[in-house]
């Protein structure tokens, strides 16, 4: 199989680590070669963060380049637009519609761009936008945004739900498992 590329983007501290861990585990269990790559360091201080997940028969490069992402999973709307140049033709964006103002917006130097979902669609990108924060809260915790997004992503993957659940059981602490399963389902059905 040709290598598939998933980018997980968001703002430092939003919990993308758990999402990439879940994906990594799932894909490895499905028998793929997998590489997961992220940059630590400065990004922890509220900066823009990106994780690359690649899988296939044999994966070489640990990173995804412009025009190569089959999926961009975004925790925040502006970040989806920022990384859009990385989307492949026919690639799929799955994004949370939550907005977190970056410093230039906070200081008033710039504006948070409006109608980003429509603008991305107008460019021909396939965009699946949902209010993950509301769904996560409905599941029981605002922190479950990452799992809501994974539930949504599972739509586009040819991997049985059982396998997702099995991977989740191995990644998520037992006491949060039920809540996260609910979050996954809310995302999946949204």
């Amino acid at each position: 199989m040709e290598t598939k590329n998933v980018m997980i983007v968001g703002v430092g501290g939003q919990g993308s680590l758990l999402a990439s861990k879940l994906l990594g585990k799932l894909l490895l269990d499905e028998g793929y070669d997998v590489k997961v790559s992220e940059v630590h360091g400065m990004s922890q201080r509220g900066g823009s963060v990106v994780t690359y997940v690649r899988f296939g028969d044999k994966v070489y490069s640990p990173v995804i380049d412009k025009g190569q992402a089959d999926y961009i999973v975004s925790f925040e709307l502006l970040e989806a637009a920022r990384w859009l140049p990385y989307l492949k033709k026919d690639g799929q964006v799955v994004t949370n519609i939550q907005q977190i103002d970056p410093m230039p917006v906070i200081t008033g130097a710039m504006e948070y761009p409006k109608d980003l979902v429509d603008k991305m669609k107008a460019l021909g990108a396939k965009v699946d936008a949902l209010d993950c924060l509301a769904l996560a809260e409905q599941a029981g915790s605002a922190k479950a945004v990452n799992i809501v997004l994974m539930g949504r992503l599972s739509h586009y993957f040819d991997i049985p739900k059982d396998a997702w659940m099995k991977a989740m059981e191995q990644i998520v602490p037992a006491k949060f498992l039920e809540m996260n399963k609910k979050a996954f389902e809310l995302g999946e059905k949204a």
């Binding site: 703002v11 430092g12 400065m42 990004s43 922890q44 201080r45 509220g46 900066g47 823009s48 412009k66 025009g67 502006l78 970040e79 637009a81 920022r82 859009l84 140049p85 989307l87 492949k88 033709k89 970056p102 410093m103 230039p104 917006v105 130097a109 710039m110 504006e111 948070y112 761009p113 980003l116 603008k119 991305m120 460019l123 021909g124 990108a125």
Partner: peptide, 20 residues
């Protein structure tokens, strides 16, 4: 030939790291 990149026309504000 590189593929055409999808880019929204708005300027995307940077999100630099800041003190917490």
């Amino acid at each position: 030939e590189a593929d055409r990149e999808l880019t929204v026309s708005d300027q995307i504000p940077m999100r630099p790291p800041v003190m917490c």
